[in-house]
Design a binder for these strands. Structure first.
Lengths: 185, 185
DNA sequence: GAACAGTGTTCGCTTTGTCGAACATACGTT
DNA sequence: AACGTATGTTCGACAAAGCGAACACTGTTC
């Protein structure tokens, strides 16, 4: 962490936290009482902001000050079709791959999603702590939180936090997938 | 914490951490590659430093960035002569006051200190985690870490972290005290 | 005493962060 | 197509942060 300049850390952090909330650069600037240009420069790593500027950003994003200096932890998991830890016997007729084990105190709702190319389905943030699991059955889809979408082919598995804006977009006709929504209760 | 402006937080924090190390403003400025004037303004709450400035300070003081935004926790304990939780029977002939219970995994060395007014005994920092207990037996003494010294009369007890510069100064002739140095092992 | 080495403060001057407007670009609508 | 409204970018002007020198001050030393 000492090898990274604060500029870059902040640049990443601001952009990360901003897109996490689905806020536009302009919107954040307005809310924080800053000029768009200021934010633009900060997010591109050019700049040496003052505390007041950072403070305004942190308050608007509702994060602690130190959050702006942390490296990004995507907290996602991607397992391609033929990867992953296999369970049980190695008989070729029957094969199980553990994609996610269930933590205690969580509830999981299962959905089947069929979608066609052309429209992007945007989902607003679910409650904090919500995690989604997506397995593509057929076709190809671009799935995930705004800042970390992944292109999934048939058989691919993707886990990502869903307490932020995320999208589902079919890249091929007849795309089918299973989405498991996991909430803490 | 939200009611305090970042300026004041930083002002306090810098001064606290600086005196904790026994560094002078000039010395810190030189080590951090900053102008004395800059630090002076910051410590007096006037100013709106840039990240680079703060970063230089944090690195030089060898503290995390967020430390500069925390409120000061002196971590000291002062028990005056006739205060404190008394133990045992309430017979007036025998009275015990618990000043500090012993945490497991600590070693305690006991010293008797006799000192006369006129000279200030400065002690350099002991290893991290070292804590000192001082009970004044006779006279009056000014004791404690640089940023939190206390004037103790006979019977007073003072506990303070000793992993930073601290002083002992007699205010009356014939001052006697007991110092217990506590180290983790 | 005078000279010195420390402390932290205040002063112009230069550098630069911030603002606001104008800008390029993409998208959805009429 | 032309339009309105988003997106984020780049520009010059101004206010302000940073620097370095000179300052006032307190002990310590010869």
């Amino acid at each position: 962490m000492h090898g990274m300049t604060p500029n870059d850390l902040i640049a990443n952090a601001i952009q990360r936290e901003r897109s996490r909330r689905g806020l536009s650069l302009s919107a954040l600037a307005a809310q924080a009482g800053l000029a768009k240009s200021t934010l633009s420069q900060l997010e591109s790593g050019k700049g040496n902001p003052s505390i007041e500027t950072l403070w305004a950003i942190a308050e608007t994003l509702d994060v602690t000050f130190s959050t702006l200096f942390e490296v990004s932890k995507p907290d996602v998991s991607l397992v391609r079709a033929h990867e992953g830890a296999r369970l049980g016997s190695d008989h070729s007729t029957f094969q199980t791959t553990l994609l996610a084990n269930c933590p205690t105190g969580t509830r999981r709702d299962v959905y089947r999603v069929d979608l066609e190319p052309g429209t992007i389905r945007r989902s607003t943030p679910h409650p904090t702590g919500t995690v989604e699991h997506t397995i593509v059955c057929a076709g190809q889809a671009r799935v995930g939180p705004l800042e970390a979408t992944q292109t999934l082919n048939a058989g691919d598995y993707y886990r990502y936090p869903a307490d932020r804006p995320h999208v589902y977009e079919a890249m091929e006709p007849g795309t089918q997938m299973v989405v498991v929504m996991e909430t803490r209760d």
